[in-house]
Amino acid sequence: MLNYIWAAMILAGIFYGAVRGRMPQITEGALAGARDAVNLCLTMAGVTALWTGLMEIAERSGLLDKAAGGLRPLIRFLFPQVPDGHPAQADISANMIANFLGLGYAATPAGLRAFEKLETLNDKPGVATDAMCMFLIVNISSLQLIPINMIAYRSQYGSANPAAVIVPALIATTVTTICGILFAKMMGSKSSSPAGVREMKMTGRTSEHVCLSEKKKGPGQTDVPGKSERGA
């Protein structure tokens, strides 16, 4: 995806610039863009190191595990089709906590593991389950509590108060997440039946290694870490 977007930006930009007679500005722009990237990374390096340092403390002191325990009622509400105690629950909460804290690079692997376990509860190969739809809608509506990258960008470009975005972003992300959950609940309740634990393997899965290699290169590579990216 990014390959096409990037190529389109470069090719369209240069073609358009040639038509408009702005070739010198384009050379200047390309060089300035590369310089900006390095400056930005210098700012980002400090903020990211601070953040991942704090998260390491939170992880090793057991704070993240404690938070995962606190999420259980929420996960039961969002994913009633997943039986209590099923391993998918642990991966879903790991994914959510990483998302809360803006750790996109940790959220995606946990999310993919959760998805794999949701697939074992799927009795219609190739068709998404209610739990999968809910999981992705919640992920896409973003759960991030502190938009740490945005704070870094704002500070790099001279904001008077870079952290001022935290609460408005929190309100906005709450609104989008609630909209997503309501929609998924509405759509899901129509067709869902309370599925038991049905360990059904997909019949059409002949090439396990293909699926694995997709997973490896899938997440995290094209997205700037911190989101889902994330999320990326």
Partner: peptide, 13 residues
Amino acid sequence: SILMSCTETVFYT
């Protein structure tokens, strides 16, 4: 600032 902090990439994800 707010927009970028409240949703993720739809098609990619």
